[in-house]
Protein backbone atom coordinates (compact mmCIF):
# COMPACT_ATOMS: atom_id res chain seq x y z
CA UNK A 1 0.00 0.00 0.00
CA UNK A 2 1.22 3.50 -0.88
CA UNK A 3 2.30 5.90 1.87
CA UNK A 4 -0.40 8.39 0.91
CA UNK A 5 -3.11 5.76 1.29
CA UNK A 6 -1.75 4.85 4.73
CA UNK A 7 -1.70 8.52 5.71
CA UNK A 8 -5.31 8.93 4.58
CA UNK A 9 -6.35 5.95 6.70
CA UNK A 10 -4.30 7.21 9.59
CA UNK A 11 -6.12 10.53 9.50
CA UNK A 12 -9.39 8.61 9.72
CA UNK A 13 -8.15 7.10 12.98
CA UNK A 14 -6.83 3.78 11.70
CA UNK A 15 -4.13 2.81 14.22
CA UNK A 16 -2.99 -0.14 12.11
CA UNK A 17 -2.13 2.25 9.26
CA UNK A 18 0.02 4.30 11.61
CA UNK A 19 1.75 1.13 12.84
CA UNK A 20 2.55 0.26 9.23
CA UNK A 21 4.07 3.71 8.65
CA UNK A 22 6.19 3.27 11.78
CA UNK A 23 7.28 -0.17 10.58
CA UNK A 24 8.30 1.26 7.19
CA UNK A 25 10.35 4.16 8.47
CA UNK A 26 11.54 3.31 11.96
CA UNK A 27 14.96 2.02 10.88
CA UNK A 28 15.67 5.11 8.79
CA UNK A 29 14.45 7.46 11.50
CA UNK A 30 16.42 5.60 14.16
CA UNK A 31 19.52 5.62 11.92
CA UNK A 32 19.35 9.38 11.43
CA UNK A 33 18.84 9.94 15.17
CA UNK A 34 21.76 7.65 16.02
CA UNK A 35 24.16 9.37 13.63
CA UNK A 36 23.01 12.77 14.79
CA UNK A 37 23.04 12.14 18.53
CA UNK A 38 25.62 9.37 19.03
CA UNK A 39 23.69 8.05 22.00
CA UNK A 40 21.72 4.82 21.66
CA UNK A 41 19.09 5.57 24.33
CA UNK A 42 18.58 9.18 23.34
CA UNK A 43 18.38 8.18 19.66
CA UNK A 44 15.60 5.69 20.43
CA UNK A 45 13.79 8.28 22.50
CA UNK A 46 14.03 10.95 19.80
CA UNK A 47 13.05 8.52 17.04
CA UNK A 48 9.90 7.67 19.01
CA UNK A 49 9.27 11.34 19.67
CA UNK A 50 9.56 11.89 15.90
CA UNK A 51 6.79 9.35 15.25
CA UNK A 52 4.56 10.89 17.91
CA UNK A 53 5.06 14.29 16.24
CA UNK A 54 4.34 12.71 12.86
CA UNK A 55 1.06 11.42 14.26
CA UNK A 56 0.12 14.76 15.80
CA UNK A 57 1.08 16.79 12.71
CA UNK A 58 -0.05 14.35 10.03
CA UNK A 59 -2.86 16.67 9.02
CA UNK A 60 -0.27 19.29 8.06
CA UNK A 61 1.64 16.97 5.73
CA UNK A 62 1.33 18.16 2.13
CA UNK A 63 2.30 15.49 -0.38
CA UNK A 64 2.73 18.10 -3.12
CA UNK A 65 5.72 19.48 -1.20
CA UNK A 66 7.61 16.18 -1.22
CA UNK A 67 7.59 12.55 -0.19
CA UNK A 68 6.49 11.43 3.27
CA UNK A 69 9.93 9.89 3.88
CA UNK A 70 11.58 13.29 3.39
CA UNK A 71 9.07 14.96 5.70
CA UNK A 72 9.76 12.40 8.44
CA UNK A 73 13.54 12.68 7.97
CA UNK A 74 13.36 16.47 8.22
CA UNK A 75 11.27 16.31 11.36
CA UNK A 76 13.71 13.85 12.91
CA UNK A 77 16.75 15.97 12.11
CA UNK A 78 15.07 19.04 13.63
CA UNK A 79 14.25 17.12 16.81
CA UNK A 80 17.84 15.87 16.97
CA UNK A 81 19.26 19.37 16.60
CA UNK A 82 16.97 20.60 19.37
CA UNK A 83 17.99 17.69 21.58
CA UNK A 84 21.65 18.47 20.95
CA UNK A 85 21.09 22.11 21.85
CA UNK A 86 19.16 21.20 24.98
CA UNK A 87 21.47 18.57 26.37
CA UNK A 88 24.64 20.06 24.98
CA UNK A 89 25.79 16.58 24.26
CA UNK A 90 27.77 17.45 21.20
CA UNK A 91 31.44 16.68 21.49
CA UNK A 92 30.89 13.66 23.69
CA UNK A 93 31.44 10.40 21.88
CA UNK A 94 29.06 8.22 23.82
CA UNK A 95 29.17 5.13 21.63
CA UNK A 96 31.77 3.37 19.64
CA UNK A 97 30.67 3.18 16.02
CA UNK A 98 31.73 -0.46 15.87
CA UNK A 99 28.65 -1.10 18.04
CA UNK A 100 26.57 -0.19 15.02
CA UNK A 101 28.23 -2.61 12.66
CA UNK A 102 26.18 -5.63 13.61
CA UNK A 103 22.97 -3.62 13.43
CA UNK A 104 23.15 -2.38 9.92
CA UNK A 105 21.08 -3.62 7.09
CA UNK A 106 23.77 -3.30 4.47
CA UNK A 107 24.03 -5.27 1.30
CA UNK A 108 27.33 -6.80 0.34
CA UNK A 109 28.42 -7.30 -3.23
CA UNK A 110 29.77 -10.86 -3.44
CA UNK A 111 31.55 -10.18 -6.74
CA UNK A 112 34.27 -8.36 -4.79
CA UNK A 113 37.45 -10.02 -3.55
CA UNK A 114 38.05 -10.30 0.24
CA UNK A 115 40.64 -7.49 0.01
CA UNK A 116 38.16 -5.21 -1.72
CA UNK A 117 35.49 -6.06 0.83
CA UNK A 118 37.90 -5.30 3.67
CA UNK A 119 38.87 -2.02 2.03
CA UNK A 120 35.24 -0.98 1.51
CA UNK A 121 34.32 -1.90 5.09
CA UNK A 122 37.30 -0.01 6.44
CA UNK A 123 36.33 3.04 4.42
CA UNK A 124 32.75 2.82 5.66
CA UNK A 125 33.93 2.52 9.26
CA UNK A 126 36.12 5.61 8.88
CA UNK A 127 33.28 7.56 7.26
CA UNK A 128 31.06 6.70 10.26
CA UNK A 129 33.73 7.82 12.70
CA UNK A 130 34.34 11.00 10.75
CA UNK A 131 30.64 11.81 10.41
CA UNK A 132 30.49 11.92 14.17
CA UNK A 133 33.18 14.54 14.52
CA UNK A 134 31.62 16.89 11.99
CA UNK A 135 29.64 19.86 13.39
CA UNK A 136 25.94 18.92 13.82
CA UNK A 137 24.68 21.13 10.99
CA UNK A 138 27.17 19.64 8.50
CA UNK A 139 26.24 16.16 9.68
CA UNK A 140 22.54 16.97 9.32
CA UNK A 141 22.93 18.33 5.78
CA UNK A 142 25.02 15.35 4.66
CA UNK A 143 22.49 12.87 6.06
CA UNK A 144 19.53 14.69 4.53
CA UNK A 145 21.22 15.22 1.15
CA UNK A 146 22.81 11.82 0.57
CA UNK A 147 21.01 9.62 3.09
CA UNK A 148 17.51 10.89 2.37
CA UNK A 149 17.97 12.46 -1.08
CA UNK A 150 16.58 15.89 -0.18
CA UNK A 151 17.48 18.72 -2.53
CA UNK A 152 19.56 21.66 -1.29
CA UNK A 153 16.44 23.84 -1.50
CA UNK A 154 14.46 21.35 0.60
CA UNK A 155 17.21 21.20 3.23
CA UNK A 156 17.36 25.00 3.39
CA UNK A 157 13.61 25.13 4.00
CA UNK A 158 13.76 22.34 6.56
CA UNK A 159 16.57 23.88 8.58
CA UNK A 160 15.34 27.44 7.98
CA UNK A 161 18.68 28.68 6.63
CA UNK A 162 19.67 30.27 3.28
CA UNK A 163 20.51 28.00 0.33
CA UNK A 164 24.07 29.37 0.34
CA UNK A 165 24.57 28.18 3.91
CA UNK A 166 23.45 24.66 3.04
CA UNK A 167 25.80 24.63 0.04
CA UNK A 168 28.69 25.70 2.28
CA UNK A 169 27.89 23.04 4.93
CA UNK A 170 27.65 20.34 2.29
CA UNK A 171 30.91 21.33 0.66
CA UNK A 172 32.79 21.60 3.96
CA UNK A 173 31.38 18.31 5.24
CA UNK A 174 32.13 16.35 2.12
CA UNK A 175 35.54 17.92 1.63
CA UNK A 176 36.52 17.16 5.26
CA UNK A 177 35.51 13.53 4.78
CA UNK A 178 37.45 13.31 1.51
CA UNK A 179 40.63 14.73 2.99
CA UNK A 180 40.49 12.51 6.07
CA UNK A 181 39.84 9.43 3.95
CA UNK A 182 42.84 10.36 1.80
CA UNK A 183 44.97 10.73 4.91
CA UNK A 184 43.79 7.32 6.12
CA UNK A 185 44.72 5.84 2.74
CA UNK A 186 41.27 4.49 1.93
CA UNK A 187 40.39 6.82 -0.92
Amino acid sequence: MEDNELIRRCLQGDKAAFDELVHRYRDRVYGIALYMLRDIELAEDIAQEAFLRVFQKLGLFDQRKGAFSKWVATLTVRLCLNALKKKNRDGQLLINTSELDGNETQQQDFSETPEEVWWLNERRRIIKDLLEILPPMQRATLLLRYGEDLSIQEIAEALKVPVGTVKAWLFRGRETLRRKLKEAGVM
Partner: peptide, 23 residues
Protein backbone atom coordinates in the same frame (compact mmCIF):
# COMPACT_ATOMS: atom_id res chain seq x y z
CA UNK B 1 34.65 11.18 -8.36
CA UNK B 2 35.73 10.95 -4.72
CA UNK B 3 32.91 13.29 -3.63
CA UNK B 4 30.42 11.10 -5.48
CA UNK B 5 31.80 7.99 -3.78
CA UNK B 6 31.42 9.67 -0.38
CA UNK B 7 27.81 10.58 -1.19
CA UNK B 8 27.13 6.95 -2.12
CA UNK B 9 28.74 5.73 1.10
CA UNK B 10 26.65 8.06 3.25
CA UNK B 11 23.53 6.81 1.47
CA UNK B 12 24.49 3.26 2.47
CA UNK B 13 24.80 4.18 6.16
CA UNK B 14 21.02 4.24 6.51
CA UNK B 15 18.89 2.48 7.65
CA UNK B 16 20.02 1.04 10.99
CA UNK B 17 17.85 -1.58 12.68
CA UNK B 18 15.89 0.03 15.50
CA UNK B 19 15.92 -1.76 18.88
CA UNK B 20 13.53 -4.71 19.15
CA UNK B 21 11.21 -3.08 21.67
CA UNK B 22 10.99 0.14 19.65
CA UNK B 23 7.42 -0.51 18.51
Amino acid sequence: LEWLEIGDEIAKLLPINAPQKFG
